[in-house]
Write a protein that binds this DNA or RNA. Structure first.
Lengths: 199, 199, 199, 199
DNA sequence: GATGAATGAGTCTTCATTCAT
DNA sequence: TATGAATGAAGACTCATTCAT
């Protein structure tokens, strides 16, 4: 196996990019390691200098996607917004991040089940942490008195919002030709908030 | 190919049952036709008397699941409930149906993407029709003045409800150990309705 | 896997014959499963209907050779010969059997080390049993008073005789162009016996 | 390719040592060049500065083992022993040398067949020369009248003795847990000589 | 002289599908 | 109708060897 850490990083990025492209087109199982190597720009031998098995690629892909989503989301959440708008803003931010990484997210949604058990657990953990980011924003709104929700409702709302973000990709056939991302964001935010605002 | 229609039906049901069991355990791609034949109780030769290719099995499975969900849901929706409760009732019914067919729904969620294009279109069409069932219930509430929603909101709400039903299965790792189906139903219904009721 | 036991036996015999031919020529590791299939007269797919892995073939080969050697030897040992001649006869019989199965024995000598652990143990056990056959003949001569040997000497003599039989194959480059099997048998018998006869 | 002869010698010795260790553990074919390089303490690139192909390593190993055995044996044979004892002594010396280089000898026994033809011939030549060393000792005993043997018997006896020495390694599973090297030496010497001494 | 990243031919093995019985 | 033996294309992965630095 190759030693140069920088090279490893570079090559793996090449692989991940190639893999996402191919997984989108044909799914994980129908994509061959040779195809990934070719799309990555190197030989099958070289591919295996950087991974141990085909499943490793799927893992790298999932891991990288989470990191990207997470990083981008955190970057956006830093903005200083107050009150109920902080939640509005968070939802919009999340939706936008997912929209930007649409293909990647879709791949992860469809293929992560093929991960070996241990890796799957790890990936689910990341999904959990992402949900918590949203949960915290909601919690803050509740704490500050802008929303009135039970703990269970907070927890479930966070999951709902995340799934609604993912929905934008995995149900694109039903949604994306109906409205733009901005419209979608507004509709979902309204549906969600109108019921939660104190009356 | 076999001609006796009754036999065809019987054999296909055997296959579908076997396939669902196996797809749940190992996914479509990791399940072999031989395994399906064995689990079905007949030989690989016989299997191919009733299907043309492995993908046909996946199609049969998906088709059958939709029919079951659809049929069960329609049965439940027949109940005569009035006003906003009709929607409450519809949500509960949907959630219950999905819960009953949990494994099947999960398989469809995870594997339908492997369907050949034509078959996928057909299956999505069924998903559409299912959404319309919910949409109609919402629409009725709006028409009758129990809810105030734009057309887009109606459309999106129907999708949301359906996805929330599916969520109960594909996010079970995060939800099913938190609350029972009844609790889940109540939480989701509250979150949804409290915002939609006229104030 | 194929069910018809008779067919399994037949196919495996084909495989074993093909494998011995090839292993002799190029050794186990340099022989591919495809070559074995081809030489056996069927496709690679069919080959794997009758074995689980390449190592299985080696095991089948070794097992079969032992059975052949053993069977042939036992057949020959049945002859009714008395006194010290029973030993002379046994040695000659053993040498002849090994000579008949020269290639097979050589393969086993050179390749059995590549057997997976468990299989190796099993094969060594068979080698042991074969040695015991010789040991018994010697023992009988001692018991009857034709030879005077300690237990250790009996044990070691049996091993020596067996190795001398194998030697005829694995040292053929030094021996077989010097004398015929009959001559070899006589020389070895003399060298061995002349020292053991009571003086 | 490197030119410094001293360095070549040093590097090759490192390689041989590493290779023997690994060949013992896993055999020639299952050992990779990378592993040999690593165990040798240098890179795969460096390895190929000192050899042309993997087979070269096997050749170096075999050649080196013969040289060691041969050298050690000759050293021991120098002792001044007279009469039949010279043969006793030679046998003991040979057995001891082989015992000292047990692993190496075993490797050679099991793997030399994988040598390319030309190299194999060369190695067999060395084996021949080694046999001749023993042959000479026996011949001397015959010439001096201590033993009475035909030429063929002399030739074969030398081979027998050598194979008995090797047997100590390749049949260790049956012998080494029965008696010590000294006991083994005594048994074999007795079995051999008692028949050859003039009566 | 030493390094180690890159290569790709070659290997074992799987599995959907066919077809004679 | 049912069976299951036969097929071979295709896939994951290995490893001896090269060569630019």
């Amino acid at each position: 196996m190759v030693k140069d850490q920088l090279l490893i990083k570079k090559r793996r990025e090449q692989m991940i990019k190639a893999a996402v492209t191919l997984f989108i087109q044909k799914g994980f199982h129908r994509t061959t390691t040779r195809e990934i190597a070719k799309e990555s720009g190197f030989s099958i031998g070289t591919l295996y200098e950087y991974i141990g098995s085909k499943e490793d690629i799927l893992y790298l892909v999932c891991d990288s996607i989470y990191d990207q989503v997470s990083e981008n989301l955190k970057k956006r959440l830093k903005q200083d917004v107050e009150g109920i708008d902080s939640l509005r803003y968070a939802i919009a931010a999340l939706f936008r991040v997912i929209d930007d990484l649409q293909d990647e997210v879709l791949v992860m949604y469809q293929e992560s089940k093929s991960l070996p058990k241990e890796a799957l657990r790890y990936v689910l953990q990341k999904e959990f942490e992402m949900t918590e980011l949203i949960q915290e924003v909601i919690q803050e709104c509740v704490t500050k008195g802008h929303l009135e929700l039970t703990d269970q409702e907070i927890y479930q709302s966070a999951h709902n919002i995340l799934v609604q973000a993912h929905m934008w990709t995995f149900r694109r056939w039903a949604i994306q030709n109906k409205y733009t991302l901005d419209e979608y964001t507004e509709i979902q935010t309204n549906l969600f908030l109108n019921g939660l605002l104190k009356k």
